[in-house]
Design a protein around this nucleic acid. Sequence first.
DNA 1: CGCGATCTTGAACACGGTCAACTGACGTGG
DNA 2: CCACGTCAGTTGACCGTGTTCAAGATCGCG
Lengths: 237, 237
Amino acid sequence: MDVPVSLAARQIACSGCALQPLCDATDPVPRGLPAVDARRRLTRGEVLFEEGSPQVAVYAVRAGFLKSCASAPGGALHVLRFLLPGDAAGLEGFGARRHASRAVALDDCEVCEISLRRAQVLCDSFDGVAAHMRALLAGQLAQAQAHGAALATLTASQRVAAFLMEMSARWGERGYSAHAFRLPMDRREMADHLGLTIETVSRILSDFRDRGWAIISGRAVAILDPAALRHCPPLAS
Amino acid sequence: MDVPVSLAARQIACSGCALQPLCDATDPVPRGLPAVDARRRLTRGEVLFEEGSPQVAVYAVRAGFLKSCASAPGGALHVLRFLLPGDAAGLEGFGARRHASRAVALDDCEVCEISLRRAQVLCDSFDGVAAHMRALLAGQLAQAQAHGAALATLTASQRVAAFLMEMSARWGERGYSAHAFRLPMDRREMADHLGLTIETVSRILSDFRDRGWAIISGRAVAILDPAALRHCPPLAS
DNA sequence: CGCGATCTTGAACACGGTCAACTGACGTGG
DNA sequence: CCACGTCAGTTGACCGTGTTCAAGATCGCG
């Protein structure tokens, strides 16, 4: 009924968390390390960390959803990625010690906060943790590059189709249905992620519905024809 | 006169190399590590590593230029970034142990190859090296995200202007003139990097010339009005 | 000099953006 | 209970940026 309960119901198991090695890899806890990390509750619209702010921790989404945004030159805002339960955030700060993006809660959510000191000590103490960190960073790098390539080469319909399939896959990975799910973001956030306008996104979703490829009613999505969406032709309007 | 000499003349000092810590941080060389790493010579068009191939090493550009490409769904090719002397390549393979992109030489060039085994051992032996690796990955991640944001939000002219300023800055960082330099890539590669067509790129460069903001003749660039390029208005054609 | 590749320029078109009106869901208050 | 507000999403008509197609220009090189 109250927020904590509903959050608990939606929360992911720690075994599926990207930062799990930084939580419990510490059986032999190194000297004086904070044994347990802070959990933070966020409500819709609340900011986890601000663009340009000093990096003091890395984060893992435990329940709920967030978006990661960057302000492009010109004032426009771009949504870099959407964070689902189990995802890690704030890693890009390892470079300049400052966050290059802003993380905002899409709804009520809970994140685990691993202080930078703890992360550093664990990386230095356990080779496996450091390697895991590299793997995470490399994975996000590859993903960011793929997203850039998609923005540069795909048409509007292809981008929307690819986005639906990506969300579908991410739900599938987490053990939920890949065919029917709810989108955690509104049209504006979707559009800002895909480099389109809300009108275009809306039109394309309607088009997919008319073709019988997918049904999107508000935030509810049902994938009917994955193959069609995957091979979505350049000209689909 | 011959290739080695011209390469030597163009090569960057090791002190400016992103992977320097993996070369000489090894004064107390750990057990049986290959003491020196391979250097590879590449000629224009030659592939350093292939997309999808297993990651066996990471690389640093010593002389010459490369591009990093990804094939987007649909066959189109996107140029993720251009590699200048001192830049590191192949790090994104740390995730899936496979390269997510292809690196191709833009001209005759030389790269230092650090075997994955060596990189791993050094990361495990020296905390500083591991942290440096994280910083490099995070930096590339932030950069890839910024590029994605640029593709999503900027107009064609803004992208071209931003690209010129970026190249200018990178030359400046390396101690060369930031006002006059030669581009290592042709129009097609520039266009594929910016998500545009060669015609559009060409038109915009001509436009910049007509406005007296920059002179671009073939691959030679002279930046005349950095401020104008930085605040390039949305509508510049 | 002539051939080919790269780059530039021009004209018409189309994809996606802009502006605006409309719909429907939800919440508030009369 | 229904009028009224707001807000998210949808749909339509028009327009502009950037693409497409096509023709020249320029340069390197045999």
